[in-house]
Structure formats: structure tokens, C-alpha cells
Design a protein around this nucleic acid. Structure first.
Length: 572
RNA sequence: CGGGACGUGGCGCAGUUUGGUAGCGCGCAGCGUUCGGGACGCUGAGGUCGUGGGUUCAAAUCCCGCCGUCCCGACCA
């Protein structure tokens, strides 16, 4: 490509309120333009990166036996009703009507359609299968944000494994795990897999691949001394034991105006330190009121609640609902004597005595509460959020809490969709079994953004060779100088012949502009050719990473760089 | 959805408090000089001030509605 003929609208000013660095750099570098909230144009440079990311994924999924197809994005709503996800996905699912008034949805993932295809399988002999596509997904995100990191319309590689038994699923899952490791390594991403909640996808086991970044939206817990790592939605930790003393008598005491854990602890430090309090929350779990009990200094992890209750929606009770149920306002709530409502308690409260909690009467609390004696716990479930300073549940090591970008997610789904759509196969004995599915996703645009988040410096993006829009830019100083231009053209042609992705910057611009643009965009190698070099028979090479410069004889430029690039194409 | 902010040439912004008919930087076009680290001079093009209504002699500016965008909290690739 000749830069003078290309559509590369680099910008020097990005919106001041753009938050993520990748957002700014992708706009400034001329990779993307925004059309609306959560929907972006891929300019030529952006599309080249996206294609390279897609090709890496394609190669690795093909390598584990994946077969690519393309499925429609426009689905009859009926299909989503059949899998029960029409309502479950809630507002995130784009819903529309055609001219005849038929309900349609825009696909946000494709388990349904692949399960329908799986009804064409009849025998265990046809399994296992790995099917995938790379296509547009639509999600009516409550809040699209940070450029490509969270879109309403994006490209996802979604693959699905089909097996007759759990062992087969394990194998398919494992293949994807390793394929994903290779994909992210090839993209230049340092992605680690963590235990995750399956959320609305259903299913049992799931792992997320996370890239450490301040722009990330997830909190990840990792152990410093073992390989325990998990999303906080799933993570747990070990706690130092609390000494309770001898069980005391249950007793009401007045606490006028004390409505928070902290206020109560300050007023009654002897009996109501935060870890001596029982935090009582009212939550609506699919509109059924539940009482949740946590230690006073612990916070609820809502996803855990949703997971253990298998609920589609959990939300805090509204003040008026709470008053009707318990007869008091938040700040004076407790579970002592409450009947007719499920009580889910966090194990950190197990066996605790001499606790303090609300009396379900405004401005009154109870002390001397014994959890086993005074509270009817329906279920014990891990509900609390892990925080800094706690230690690893496996080996007691120190826990690190960090923010990450979720670049991939792999699920063991099970038989939910195959049962819903009637995808059954017969085993050797002739018995019918629902196909066991796994599902595996990577967002291409988010992957691009994650690369930029982790590969940039003050001058711009530093693309890894594997996903760079062009691997080399030949920068011509004084394109009006015939000798320089001739040398540059020759090098450009030789790169082409050598199979290198090359662009020649033949614009009538001053050198400083060209250098700055090349660095902003982030081409891995710059070959600078000017009148002086043309005469001396040499060119200057600049590696984008670290901006390392060196001279090469003209004849050595293409062979040397082609070799370096070929070696770097497959990532680390 | 809750909270905060914003919408003015292609891009980034000022002007709004205190109404008087729109300005700055970058970019763009022409000419000239310059040019191995974001050059300069001269000339010029380009704006229904998001949108609808209201107040007023007069609205970018004040009032109301709507639309859109961003940022902070609950969801996901």
C-alpha cells in the first residue's frame, strides 16, 4: 500500500472524556471511528488488525479440529423462547419485529442454533464435533464503554463442542483451553485463566482468560504462592478465626440513630466490632424475598447469590418492601425470630456466638446472639466478596487483587440446549443421550483493545508483529528526490516479493510528521530511506519496541527484516 | 436504570454566569519558502451553535420537552 493513496485519517486529538488508553490510541491512530454508543467503524488499519486476530484464532481452532460455519444473526424469537433465554437474557437481548409482526431477536451468542444443527447427529460415531463461527454478536449493553472494550455490536469467535459423555466434554474443554493459551500468546497477550462464574450461560465449570489492565472491568484474585486464581465473582479465601468467648444471653438494647455497621461499632466497641456483627440484607431472588446474613465487615458478592440460587435476577429489596417484611428499616434488620423467609448465611458466621444484629425494630439491636441457637439458617452458602489482606484458601499464601480484561471465556455447558432442542445421539448399546455441549468465546475487537492496552508507550501503539496492520513501513525522506524514491520503491517491492506486509510512506510531509505518525500507529519496523542514505547505500531501521535504531546496507535490509518478521509472526 | 457532565466548522475546544447575531488551535485548498524528529508566510473555503417549542425588540446564551454522547455504580467476549 502506498500511504499517499491510503485512507489513514490519523488524528492528533481524541475526545477528552475518552477514558481507556486503547480507546484514545485507536481513534488517534486512525483505526476506528465511532458511529454510536458501542458501535464503531473499522477503518482500513483497524480491519487489517482485526483480520489478523481472526486468522490466528481460526488457525488455532482449526488445529484442534474445529469446523467453521456461518450462522444467521437474525433469529426467530421462538428459538430463544424454546431455550428459555428469551426472558432470561432480559434487556441485553435485542428484540425486534418484522413487517408481519413476527418477533425476532439479534443473536448475542449461538448455542440455540448450534443445538438445532446438532439434531442432525444421531450416533455416538459422529462425535465428538467442534463447530465454530466468527460472526457479529449484538448485545444491548446497559453501558457500552471504553471504545472497543465493550461494544453493543462486535465480532465473536464462538465455538461449541458436542460430546456423548462427560469425558468427551473434558477433552473438548481441555483442547480449547490450550488453543486459547496459544491464541493469546500469539497475539502478544499475557492472559491467565481464572475460575469464573458461569452467570446467565448456565453450565458448571467455566474459566475466563484475563489480561491484567487498569482498563479492565473484572477483579481477579491470585495467590502469590500457588496457582489459585479466580474472578472475585467466584473467589473465596481463608479467614483468621474469631474468638467469641462464652455464649451470652440474648438481650435487646437501644441504639438510637445507629444505622450502619461502622456507627454501631463505634458506639459499642466492646460488643459490636464489625466482625462481631451480623449484616442482614434483604434480597429479591427472582422476586422472592430472601434474608442474607454476612459478617459485619464482609460485603455481598451478588454474582455468588445469583449462582447459588440459580436465579435470573437478584436485586436488593426496596425500603418499602423491607419494612413490610421485617417491620423495620435497613440499619436495624436481623434474622432472629424471622420465619417464612429463606435465610442464606455465609459460612463465616457458622458457630458464632455473642454476636450483635438488628432487632427488626428501628433503633434497637440484639446482643448475645448465638447463630446456632437463635437463627434458623435455611442454607449455608459462600456469599462474601474476597478483599485484600485475606489469604489463599488452598495454601494460605498472600492474595493479590487486580483488575483484568476478560478476553476469552470457556464453559462446560452440559445438556441444557441439546435437551431443549432435542439433540440426542445413541450410544453403542442403542441408548439415547442428550449431546453434551461446551461453549467457548473470544471477542475479536476486545482482544485488539487488550493488545493496545498492554502494548503501547508515550508515542503510541506498539503492535506485536503477529497482529500489526503492516509489519514494515518504508518511510521516504524527500519523496521528491528521485534517487531516494527509487531506492525506497525498490525496497518496498522486495518486501512485497518476500511476503512481508509493507506500506510505503511516500507522502509529501516533513520527516518529523512521518516518524510521529508511524510511531502513533505502531508499525513494528520502520525503514527510513533518504537522499543521504540512498547515496551512501544504506537505510536506517527503527524497531518500534523500544525505538531501537541501527543502519543496514541496502542489500541487507529486506533479507534481515524478513527473517526477523517471519520469526516474530507466531508470537512469543 | 440510579448519579454526574456534555452537545458550537472535519477534529479538539472557548464563548453561556451578565442575551446584542460566533471565535481559537489543529486540519483543509492555492501560492511561495522550508524539510532526517510534529516548519513558516500570505491568501482562502468551511458553522441550521443537537433538536422542537417558549420568553424577548433581540437567544449559542434564559425556560420546558425530546434526542444523542461520555464518565461513575448493577451485566458480559
Amino acid at each position: 500500500m502506498r500511504w499517499s493513496e491510503a485512507f489513514i485519517p490519523t488524528l492528533r486529538d481524541a475526545p477528552a472524556d475518552a477514558e481507556a488508553i486503547s480507546h484514545k490510541l485507536l481513534i488517534r491512530g486512525g483505526f476506528i471511528r465511532q458511529l454510536a454508543s458501542g458501535s464503531y467503524v473499522m477503518l482500513p488499519l483497524g480491519q487489517r488488525v482485526r483480520l489478523k486476530v481472526g486468522e490466528i484464532i481460526r488457525q488455532e481452532i482449526n488445529a484442534i479440529g474445529g469446523q467453521e460455519m456461518v450462522l444467521p444473526t437474525l433469529h426467530p424469537a421462538e428459538i430463544w423462547r424454546k431455550s428459555d433465554r428469551y426472558d432470561l437474557m432480559g434487556e441485553n437481548l435485542f428484540k425486534l419485529e418484522d413487517r408481519r409482526g413476527a418477533d425476532l431477536v439479534l443473536g448475542m451468542t449461538e448455542e440455540e442454533i448450534f443445538a438445532i444443527l446438532a439434531t442432525e447427529l444421531f450416533s455416538y460415531r459422529e462425535l465428538p464435533q467442534i463447530w465454530y463461527q466468527m460472526h457479529t454478536k449484538f448485545r444491548d449493553e446497559p453501558r457500552a464503554k471504553a471504545g472497543l472494550l465493550r461494544l453493543r455490536e462486535f465480532t465473536m469467535k464462538d465455538s461449541y463442542t458436542l460430546d456423548i459423555d462427560a469425558d468427551g466434554l473434558d477433552t473438548g474443554f481441555d483442547k480449547h483451553y490450550h488453543a486459547y493459551k496459544r491464541i493469546f500468546a500469539r497475539m502478544g497477550l499475557d492472559a491467565v485463566d481464572v475460575q469464573a462464574s458461569s452467570g446467565a450461560m448456565g453450565g458448571t465449570v467455566s474459566s475466563e482468560f484475563m489480561v491484567r489492565s487498569e482498563a479492565g472491568e473484572d477483579w481477579i484474585v491470585t495467590c502469590g504462592t500457588c496457582d489459585y486464581r479466580a474472578n472475585v465473582e467466584k473467589a473465596t479465601s481463608s479467614l483468621p478465626p474469631v474468638e467469641d468467648g462464652y455464649p451470652g444471653e440474648l438481650e435487646r438494647f437501644p441504639t438510637p440513630g445507629l444505622r450502619t455497621i461502622a456507627a454501631l461499632a463505634e458506639a459499642h466497641p466492646d460488643i459490636a466490632a464489625p466482625e462481631r456483627q451480623i449484616k442482614t440484607l434483604v434480597y429479591m431472588v427472582d422476586d422472592v424475598p430472601h434474608l442474607l446474613l454476612l459478617r459485619g465487615d464482609h460485603d455481598l458478592q451478588e454474582q455468588k447469590l445469583a449462582d447459588v440460587t440459580a436465579a435470573a435476577e437478584v436485586r436488593p429489596g426496596r425500603p418499602e418492601e423491607i419494612r413490610e417484611l421485617l417491620g423495620a428499616d435497613p440499619g436495624s434488620l436481623g434474622a432472629v425470630g424471622v420465619e417464612g423467609m429463606p435465610v442464606i448465611a455465609d459460612p463465616a458466621l457458622q458457630g458464632r456466638v455473642n454476636m450483635t444484629t438488628g432487632a427488626n425494630e428501628d433503633d434497637w439491636h440484639l446482643k448475645g446472639v448465638s447463630v446456632p441457637r437463635d437463627i434458623g439458617v435455611t442454607r449455608w452458602e459462600d456469599l462474601r466478596s474476597v478483599t485484600t489482606g485475606e489469604t489463599c484458601i488452598v495454601d494460605g499464601g498472600p492474595l493479590d487483587l487486580w483488575k483484568g480484561i476478560e478476553v476469552g471465556h470457556i464453559f462446560k455447558l452440559g445438556t441444557k440446549f441439546s435437551k431443549a432442542f432435542g439433540a440426542y445421539v445413541q450410544d453403542e448399546q442403542g441408548n439415547s443421550h442428550p449431546v453434551i455441549m461446551g461453549s467457548y468465546g473470544i471477542g475479536l475487537e476486545r482482544g485488539m483493545a487488550a493488545v493496545v492496552e498492554s502494548c503501547h508507550d508515550d508515542n503510541g501503539i506498539v503492535w506485536p508483529v503477529s497482529v500489526a496492520p503492516y509489519e514494515v513501513v518504508v518511510t521516504v525522506i524527500r519523496p521528491d528526490d528521485e534517487a531516494a524514491m527509487a531506492v525506497a520503491n525498490q525496497i518496498y517491492d522486495e518486501f512485497h516479493t518476500a511476503g512481508v506486509d509493507v506500506i510505503i510512506d511516500d507522502r509529501e510531509e516533513r520527516p518529523g510528521v512521518k516518524f510521529a505518525d508511524a510511531e502513533l500507529i505502531g508499525f513494528p519496523y520502520r525503514v527510513t530511506v533518504g537522499p543521504k542514505g540512498a547515496e551512501a547505500g544504506s537505510a536506517e531501521i527503527t524497531e518500534r519496541r523500544g525505538l531501537v535504531k541501527y543502519e543496514l546496507a541496502l542489500g541487507a535490509v529486506v533479507p534481515t527484516l524478513s527473517e526477523a518478521i517471519a520469526a516474530a509472526r507466531f508470537g512469543i
